[in-house]
Simulated assay, not measured.
Amino acid sequence: MPEPRPEVLDFLLTRRSHPARTLGLPVPDRAALAPILRAAARSPDHGKLEPWRFIVLERAALTRLAALAERRGRARGEEPEKLAKLRAQFAEAHLAVAVVASAKPSGKIPELEQTLSAGAVCLAALNAALAAGWGANWLTGWPATDRDFLTEGLALAGHEFVAGFIHIGTRTATPPDRPRPDIESITQWVSE
C-alpha cells in the first residue's frame, strides 16, 4: 500500500511560477542554491549520463548577457518591442540558472531522451526553488538556441543549448492563477 504524501501533492497541485520581472532581492546565495540544484539533479536520467549541467548567472553576468541579447537580436532582425522584453529578461534579473542540455554520445540512450531529461531538470529546479520559498520562473526564448549567443555568452560547445533559464528570487507580487487544462479533454484511457 502506498504511503501518501498529501503535503507534496498539494504543493504540486497549487504551485505557481512567478513572472521573472516580479522577482527581486534577495536571491539565494550559494548555500541556499545548492539544495535546489541537488534536487534538480535527481531528475530521471536513463543511463546515468547526466546530459545536462548548470551555469549560475549572477548579476554582472546577466547584465553582460542583456547587452549581448540586444546586439544579437538586432543582427537577427528581431522586432524592437520583443527585443526590449527579451533584453529585460536578463537586464532586470538578479539570479538565473542556465540548465544546459549537453547530450552525451550513447549507443543506448537516444539524444531525444537526453533532451527530455534536461527539461525534467528545468522543472525540478523550478519546483525546488518554489518549495524552498523563493519565486521562480522558467524562460527560454531565442537566446536558448542561438549559436552565436550561446558561444559568445556562455561558451557552450556546438552540441549544447539552454533547456531553460530558471530565474530565482524573492517574490514581490503574487500573480493570479491562470486557467488550467481540462484533464478530461486531454486524457485517454486505454484498457485493451
Results as ranks from 00 to 15, higher is better:
residue 104 K to Y: 10
residue 121 V to I: 05
residue 116 L to E: 10
residue 133 G to F: 10
residue 111 E to G: 03
residue 120 A to I: 04
residue 113 E to A: 13
residue 100 V to D: 06
residue 122 C to Y: 07
residue 127 N to A: 11
residue 117 S to V: 05
residue 97 V to C: 00
residue 115 T to Q: 14
residue 105 P to S: 05
residue 128 A to M: 01
residue 130 L to E: 04
residue 111 E to C: 07
residue 126 L to A: 00
residue 121 V to K: 12
residue 127 N to T: 09
residue 102 S to I: 08
residue 122 C to V: 12
residue 122 C to T: 03
residue 129 A to P: 08
residue 126 L to I: 00
residue 122 C to P: 04
residue 107 G to C: 13
residue 118 A to E: 05
residue 129 A to E: 06
residue 105 P to T: 11
residue 125 A to H: 01
residue 107 G to H: 13
residue 107 G to T: 13
residue 112 L to I: 15
residue 100 V to K: 14
residue 133 G to H: 10
residue 107 G to Y: 06
residue 135 G to D: 04
residue 124 A to K: 14
residue 134 W to P: 09
residue 123 L to I: 14
residue 94 H to E: 13
residue 95 L to V: 08
residue 105 P to L: 11
residue 99 V to L: 01
residue 118 A to L: 10
residue 95 L to F: 01
residue 113 E to K: 03
residue 119 G to R: 08
residue 110 P to W: 13
residue 95 L to T: 04
residue 103 A to E: 08
residue 98 A to P: 12
residue 124 A to V: 05
residue 106 S to Q: 11
residue 135 G to E: 08
residue 96 A to K: 00
residue 132 A to Q: 11
residue 106 S to K: 03
residue 104 K to D: 05
residue 113 E to W: 15
residue 114 Q to E: 05
residue 127 N to D: 08
residue 106 S to M: 10
residue 128 A to Y: 01
residue 117 S to I: 04
residue 96 A to C: 02
residue 115 T to N: 14
residue 99 V to E: 04
residue 98 A to R: 11
residue 114 Q to D: 01
residue 105 P to N: 10
residue 109 I to A: 08
residue 98 A to F: 04
residue 98 A to M: 07
residue 110 P to I: 12
residue 119 G to T: 05
residue 98 A to L: 07
residue 116 L to Q: 14
residue 117 S to M: 06
residue 104 K to V: 14
residue 123 L to A: 15
residue 115 T to R: 15
residue 102 S to E: 11
residue 115 T to W: 15
residue 105 P to F: 13
residue 132 A to L: 09
residue 134 W to L: 01
residue 129 A to F: 05
residue 130 L to K: 00
residue 131 A to R: 02
residue 108 K to N: 07
residue 110 P to K: 07
